[in-house]
Computed example of a mutant assay.
Amino acid sequence: MINYTLKQLYSFEAVVRTKSFTRASKELFVTQPAVYMQIQQLTKNIGADLINTKGKTVTPTYIGKMFYQTCIDVIDTLEKSKLDIDQTLDPEAGHLQIAVATTTNSFVSHILAKFKKKYPRMSFYLDVTNRESLLKKLDNNEADLIIMGEPPTDMPLITQPFMENPLIAIAHPEHPLLKNQKNTIKNLTNETLITREQGSGTRITIERIIGMRLNSDIEINSNEAIIQAVQAGLGIGFVSKHTVKLELENNVIKQLDIDKFPITRHWYVVHHSKNKLSPIAERFKKFIVENS
């Protein structure tokens, strides 16, 4: 294994580039003997001559030319990494990794737009995915912040509720149950129920509140597809009210009046307890709580 230090790499790069120990020492703000000593130690560590000295002229040997390119690559990588870290730690810039439940996309984009307007130098990556994927990201600490429904209780998380999330039953505008002043869970017995897939947060919450397992004829892993299925008259769907605001206003679907609905839960901003938030992540967490 070759052992060399960053001081040796920076010294060697400067000497070869400037072709002078004197100019390299001035650039590095150290003495000329210090630079010479770093080159000597580097030569010893590698086990081959790296430079030729003729008078005041310094040129790299064949191996020195090869190693010089290695120095360039390493230094460029280190400088880029430092720049990336500095930008990430900048409280008004930085990069934000956000993962959100598919249901939240209807309002998260608006919040991000407002936040980006306030902090124009920041950048973000938004991953819209299902609950199973969010849980994996939490477990593997793959996102700065996660926005989801009810967080799991068996993981060391820091959670902050920030907005109500009413779950409602929706039906086609001509569905017969809409004529009833009040429906009960029993009224759903003979109906085709359109629900999210097994394991989704919406489905888990509904089954817990109504006290029964949903033996749905149709399972769909997209809220948009559930809404379209209800519009087509396939059955009764269960969605967050936030996802059907426009459809309800335009009467393309109707909210079904039924016992225990709406089911009121909350949206949470979540991160792993071991995850130290960057300054921009801290600001976004505060922003979403205050502006929801």
Rank of each mutant, 00 (worst) to 15 (best):
S222R: 09
E13S: 14
K26W: 05
A225P: 03
G55N: 03
I280Y: 06
N223M: 04
I206G: 00
S133T: 14
K241H: 07
K19N: 14
S133Y: 06
N250I: 05
M212F: 07
D90R: 01
A281S: 14
N251V: 06
S11M: 01
S273W: 07
V16R: 06
E79H: 08
F124N: 05
T57R: 12
T57I: 12
T77A: 15
L83M: 12
I218S: 07
G149K: 02
A48Y: 10
V108H: 11
A14Y: 00
T31V: 01
E191A: 08
G149R: 01
I63D: 08
P262I: 03
K82S: 14
N183M: 05
L246A: 15
G55T: 01
T61D: 01
I46M: 06
A48N: 10
I72G: 00
A281T: 10
K114G: 10
S123G: 04
N140I: 02
H242I: 10
D257K: 15
T18I: 04
L89Q: 10
W267A: 00
F107Y: 14
D127P: 00
I75W: 09
L177W: 06
S222E: 01
N221F: 04
A34C: 09
S278Y: 15
V30F: 09
L193W: 06
R131W: 11
P156F: 01
T202K: 05
N165S: 15
G55V: 09
V289W: 00
I210K: 01
T18R: 14
R203I: 04
H266Q: 14
R131H: 13
K186A: 14
H242G: 03
P166V: 00
K274F: 07
Y119D: 00
I51M: 09
K254I: 03
S216I: 01
G64L: 02
D139A: 13
E150P: 04
T77Y: 12
L214A: 02
T53Q: 15
T184K: 03
T61S: 08
R196E: 12
H175V: 04
A171C: 03
V108P: 11
S133W: 03
N275G: 01
T243P: 04
T31Y: 03
G94K: 09
R121F: 04
H95M: 12
P156T: 05
G149W: 03
G235Q: 02
